[in-house]
Design a protein around this nucleic acid. Sequence first.
DNA 1: AAATCGATCAACCGCAGCAGC
DNA 2: CGCTGCTGCGGTTGATCGATT
Length: 268
Amino acid sequence: MGRQPCCDKVGLKKGPWTAEEDKKLINFILTNGHCCWRALPKLAGLLRCGKSCRLRWTNYLRPDLKRGLLSEAEEKLVIELHSQLGNRWSKIASHLPGRTDNEIKNHWNTHIKKKLKKMGIDPLTHRPLLPSANNELHQEQQQEEDKVVDEEQVEEKKGVMNTVDHKETDAFLRSPGFCVDDVPMIQQHEMLVPSASSTSSSSSSSSSSSSSSMHKVEEIQLPSWMEWPESTCLYGLDDLSGWDFISDPFSQCQRIALDQEAWKFELF
DNA sequence: AAATCGATCAACCGCAGCAGC
DNA sequence: CGCTGCTGCGGTTGATCGATT
């Protein structure tokens, strides 16, 4: 036996809400609260199903809602939370006061997804997209190709990055994990991070930290639950802050920023 | 000015989880 | 324990609007 529909759909209105309906719903909820969504439309004099009323209230009419686009900080938080929680929009929304799951879901699908793809990141896995994922090369061929790094691109990268250690950078750029579409893959031993005394500093202070305070990433104590990845993805430079951050699995614990100028990392 | 296209986002739908009986 | 009803969640749709041709 199938379940009954949430409401008797005959004679009920669907589609966009009118200002009049909004007014009725707001007035009713502000005076009576929403004890039972199923009964609410009748009591409020609305020809809508309870589900529709609930959605309208939670996604649009609630007085504590923030309107407008997500800020840069909110967007970053959404990306970070998504890497941990996946498509659990309500959980993600609970970390962003005044934002709804629907709003975040929409923003993810229309803005963030594109942004990440542009950066060479798979929005589903938060890992780098394979540069030739769509062609039909055999995996072995692909691996072989990955080893061959375009000399021009290497030179370009070298020009952009004023490295602390050119030998290391060279090794990095030529490493098998290096992804040609601006998504460098680096190994743990290739990372430099500030020593413990400077890890709590803000990103602004980091740029002034000297290279002598840097150390190899393997010296970091990771939480027991966290596994170090085989390779880690750095993704595109943030236009506003000038800082980059590493995706999964670091985001589960701490982000590591890349200062392109000095080619060093900072935990924050 | 009209037609077309793509982006956006409010709203809908179906399902799962939970509580009460 | 199983059934039923309610709520909330996540995926999807479709109306609308602005940009482009």
